[in-house]
């Protein structure tokens, strides 16, 4: 994304960001009152003041919009009160989803790298396969998720693998496109230089093309992390899976447990941010060996 990392986003954004988040939370509380009021009025005695109404809307068991503190309490409860191996712990569900996303990311990375190397070195692959890889980024690939899960289920393959397959399939495209761009990033002079040294193809790859591609790998890895997580979550929907963040979302929507849905949603967002932070950490470590720049 072109707008991804502008200077605006970096320079002294902490204070404004906190202000915006606080404003959002305030709007959220007001919204909770507005959305939950009809339901709350039924429970309240005649003549109850606004104070009572607000208190009621912020403490319902099945609110239309739970108040932020309710979500925080639910998150804390489901994170810390159960052992993390228990199906009642949100950590357990998060791990079920994240492990599938990670496995898929691993697939995607290996396959994407291999294919990118092929596309950069073999003209036939570049001309025949690359247009399809680019075109598939415009297609809602996620739509195949239910079918893949069902078909693999028919073959007796359930659990992590179908989810990892979908996560990997989604993450594969941006990684391939990014790596092809990266492996092609060296300018003609840098390539000519290698030719004057009579460098072998392997040396051109390991000393020039691969190091040059890292700057492109990390941005596509960020996109891939989010996609893999979305893929793993959506893959949990069609079978009505028992575990995972997607399963929690689905169960919550079946039983009207809005607070549980929001808690699962925030957990998914946290996992996404954790993944992005991990990518940034690796990126920083890689950049440090190069004097701070990739």
């Amino acid at each position: 994304m072109r707008g991804g990392r502008t200077s605006l986003a970096r320079e002294g954004a902490t204070l404004p960001l906190i202000a915006v988040i606080l404003a959002l939370i305030a709007v959220w509380y007001v919204g909770a009152v507005a959305l939950n009021a009809p339901q709350a009025r039924e429970q309240l005695a005649e003549g109850a003041g606004f104070r009572d109404l607000a208190a009621a809307t912020w403490s319902m068991t099945r609110p239309v919009l739970p108040a932020p503190h309710q979500i925080a309490v639910e998150l804390a409860r489901s994170l810390f009160t159960h052992p993390i191996t228990s199906p009642r712990s949100l950590v357990y569900h998060a791990w079920v989803t994240v492990s599938a996303a990670l496995a898929g990311l691993g697939f995607a990375l290996a396959l994407g790298l291999l294919l990118a190397i092929g596309i950069v070195h073999v003209r036939l692959l570049d001309r025949s396969l690359m247009p399809w890889v680019i075109a598939s980024q415009t297609v809602p690939v996620l739509a195949i998720a239910p079918m893949v899960v069902v078909v693999l289920g028919n073959l007796g393959i359930t659990g992590l693998l179908p989810k990892a397959a979908i996560a990997g399939y989604l993450a594969f495209f941006p990684i391939t496109v990014g790596m092809v761009k990266g492996l092609r990033a060296p300018d003609p002079l840098q390539l000519d230089l290698m030719r004057t040294y009579d460098a072998r193809a392997m040396q051109v790859f390991s000393l020039l093309r691969f190091p040059a591609s890292l700057g492109f790998l990390f941005p596509s890895l960020r996109i891939a992390v989010t996609l893999a997580l979305v893929g793993a979550i959506v893959a949990e929907l069609p079978t009505g899976a028992q575990a995972g963040l997607g399963a929690r979302l689905l169960a919550g929507s079946y039983y009207g447990q809005t607070v549980q849905i929001w808690a699962a949603l925030f957990m998914a967002a946290a996992m996404s941010m954790l993944g992005l932070a991990a990518v940034s950490l690796i990126e920083t470590l890689a950049a440090r060996r190069r004097g701070g720049r990739l």
Binding site: D187, L189, Q190, D192, L193, L207, L208, P211, A212, L214, R290, R293, L294
Partner: peptide, 8 residues
């Protein structure tokens, strides 16, 4: 141009 490799 110098054609130096920026990561080295």
């Amino acid at each position: 141009a110098p054609a130096l490799y920026p990561w080295r």
